[in-house]
Design a protein around this nucleic acid. Sequence first.
DNA 1: CGTCCATTTGAGGTGGATCAACCCTAGTGG
DNA 2: CCACTAGGGTTGATCCACCTCAAATGGACG
Lengths: 232, 232
Amino acid sequence: MLTQTLNTQPINTQIGGKIAPAHPVADRFGAIAGHVGLVATEFSYCKEEEIYGEDEPSEYVYQVVSGAVRSYKLLSDGRRQIGAFHLAGDVFGLESGPTHRLAAEAIIDTTVRLVKRASLEQAAGADVLVARKLWAITASELRHAEDHMLLLGRKTAMERVATFLLEMDRRLAVAGMMALPMCRRDIGDYLGLTLETVSRALSQLQAHGILGFSGARQIVLRNRQSLLDMHV
Amino acid sequence: MLTQTLNTQPINTQIGGKIAPAHPVADRFGAIAGHVGLVATEFSYCKEEEIYGEDEPSEYVYQVVSGAVRSYKLLSDGRRQIGAFHLAGDVFGLESGPTHRLAAEAIIDTTVRLVKRASLEQAAGADVLVARKLWAITASELRHAEDHMLLLGRKTAMERVATFLLEMDRRLAVAGMMALPMCRRDIGDYLGLTLETVSRALSQLQAHGILGFSGARQIVLRNRQSLLDMHV
DNA sequence: CGTCCATTTGAGGTGGATCAACCCTAGTGG
DNA sequence: CCACTAGGGTTGATCCACCTCAAATGGACG
């Protein structure tokens, strides 16, 4: 159902009525195998554009250059669980098996580097260090998923939001401020909550002086310790 | 805090007042690297015995020979999230990084095969097929974790229990019947529910003729289709 | 300046948690 | 062989954290 999207990816093409310009640049896919010198292609996705679908054959591996991506699963009635957000520098879409286990969409306009999965497999077959790196990437995703299962299964709404804020602070804060790329609904679907519950928790943290807003998605943490206290 | 347990593992020793007999058998760790001929040791754990703790250095990789194991994380106040049950044939405790990310305990008396992690790493360095197999094992755990995040974040209590029953039916049913090794509390901590909610859901399924009990832990599924209908 | 969508806030409902008996069964010992 | 016990499991009653539905507010952008 989704293979045509993949086929069109490395080509400058029109998708969903919006121009998605390709910037084919011979580039080394540093985070995966810098020393191997694999050729990577740069490619851009518009806000809300699908990168690949759930259960689609995994033909490429991606690295975020700029922007943000959400990986998610859907239930048949539309309930959504976002498993991870991918930010600048993150590798995503790497599979050991034949298909993507989650769908991926650009949250905002996003540029990625991509390499063919087959060429990575080949490099891994020739160089055990590459194989080790691929394993390490998957293991790192597993670690995140294990932490997130604890959050989804056992933490309260406020604890989930505190954990989320600390994660985002660690991953995208610059000069003590973070600019969230995702909306409240995305945060809710990541944390297993509704967007209203996320909003209420954030308001409550602001009321306690634990964080400050400058625009709904610009957040400054003013008291990380109190967030740390509630997130475990 | 937990390293002493590891040190005593491959030795016939007394743990927690109970004799845990070791059966040192030169054995090939088939599921991981049958063609490499790594020497594995057999070892047994009593019911409720800890195999390793969270954040403990990962010195061994395990395969369940018989019995059942739970892997879990704890919050500081005792809330527990079981990330996976490991049944006969399953490999567990494999880490790409230096430490175990979840603790592991025997649910019932359990025998495992174990190999030193270092020897596996060595085999993986020499044989790219072994490296590929280790990656595949971690990827398989990730797949399970991703499915479980969807369950924990977005499914109702009844949907969770239905999913659990289908998983256990697939993994341990013999002659159409499954003998659950774990108690209701374990099931609840796996599904992000209380033991009471699990019990009520099972009773309701029995009342609808979807399953039958012969003892609280002996279950026969009488209508898998209706479980399939609710689990997505 | 107006429109649109994201976000916030309010009011009320509910699914699952909590608290509390009670029951069942396997194991123990007389 | 049976009474007793202890731990797991079931069921009931009530509570509450979060969801749902609704409306107001705000900010970005044409």
